[in-house]
Simulated assay, not measured.
Amino acid sequence: MGRGRVQLKRIENKISRQVTFSKRRSGLLKKANEISVLCDADVALIVFSTKGKLFEYSTNSSMESILERYERYSYAERELNPNDSDPKENWSVERPKLMSRIELLQRNIRHYMGQDLDPLNLRELQSLEQQIDTSLKRIRTRKNQLMHESISELQKKEKALQEQNNLIRKKLKENEKTQNGQAQPNSGQNSATFHHVPPSQSHQVPNLTIGGPFGGTREMNTDGSGQALPGFNYSLMPPWMLRHVSNGG
């Protein structure tokens, strides 16, 4: 006796409904995989349970690319036939699409942060890991680029500071040379030259040569005591000079 056809209506029993959902969901995902492999088709399948849990399947092109293709196709169809649809109806259709898109993006963000990974199978986890690795490579490349640019900028600043430092040192040396050159002539002009006179010569009385209208030139020798030396002719000197010599000058 063959199995009868199941009547399509909502299963009232909660447990039976959950069991049926699990069996049919697995079969639906399997059929989606078979048609994508056998027919080389891009398939995207999204299923929400009564509790709001998401189940999905997509081919290697990923769910995002398939949804973008669907949106582009729908937009092109609306552009070709603008009179066939009511604007209010379009808004009512677009709103669920946008909400689904937002929810999908939020779910992807959670996956990238390592959250809500239980519904993902092995292939989806591998795809997610590959996407994260690609993003990390781009981030590291950009980070290394910024580090190299920062190092190059610091090296330029260091070189400019070194040149400025060398210029300041050169100016200081030139100022020191100028100050030293001005100080040497002034010190030569201010220095006085002293000649040492021996004590024996400082107390010697030199020979006095007296001449004039009193009888030619005579030499007067004296030892500094005011006494006339022998052999000196006083008659040749005027009287005021004789008194001056005899009194010791």
Rank of each mutant, 00 (worst) to 15 (best):
T222W: 06
L125Q: 05
L120G: 10
T20Y: 13
P213M: 10
K137D: 04
Y57G: 00
Q126F: 04
E176W: 02
N247Q: 13
V19T: 14
E158N: 01
S152K: 03
V47F: 02
N233I: 00
R110K: 11
Q201T: 11
N165Q: 06
F214M: 10
K170F: 08
Q189R: 11
V47C: 14
Q145R: 03
E68R: 13
S92L: 15
K97C: 03
E12K: 04
T50H: 09
L136D: 00
F48Q: 13
G2P: 13
S16G: 12
L80F: 15
V205G: 04
K177T: 11
S235E: 08
E158R: 02
H148M: 01
S127R: 05
R95P: 00
S36Q: 14
S202K: 09
I132F: 08
E56L: 12
S235H: 06
T59I: 01
E149P: 00
G212Q: 12
K173W: 07
I109L: 12
G4P: 08
K31Q: 15
L67S: 02
P198T: 09
I15E: 14
A41W: 09
E89I: 15
Q227F: 13
P87I: 09
E158T: 00
N180L: 07
K170M: 08
R25Y: 15
E124F: 04
L161A: 02
S58F: 14
Q164H: 03
E71M: 14
T217H: 08
P239N: 01
L236N: 04
P87H: 08
T178E: 11
I66D: 07
E149F: 01
P230K: 03
T217I: 14
N121L: 01
E34M: 04
D42C: 05
A44Y: 01
S62W: 07
H196L: 06
S92P: 01
V47P: 04
S135Y: 04
L105M: 10
R243G: 10
N60P: 06
N144S: 02
N90Y: 05
Q155M: 03
S191T: 13
G248C: 09
H111K: 00
R243W: 11
P213W: 09
A44E: 01
N221Y: 10
E64A: 12
I11Y: 06
M63S: 09
I139R: 05
R101H: 13
F21P: 02
M147F: 00
T134R: 04
I210S: 00
E94P: 06
K170C: 05
P82C: 15
Q155D: 05
R107E: 00
K173F: 07
Q18D: 11
Q131C: 06
P198R: 06
F48P: 07
S187L: 03
L28A: 07
N190P: 02
E94C: 14
E77Y: 13
S127G: 05
D84S: 15
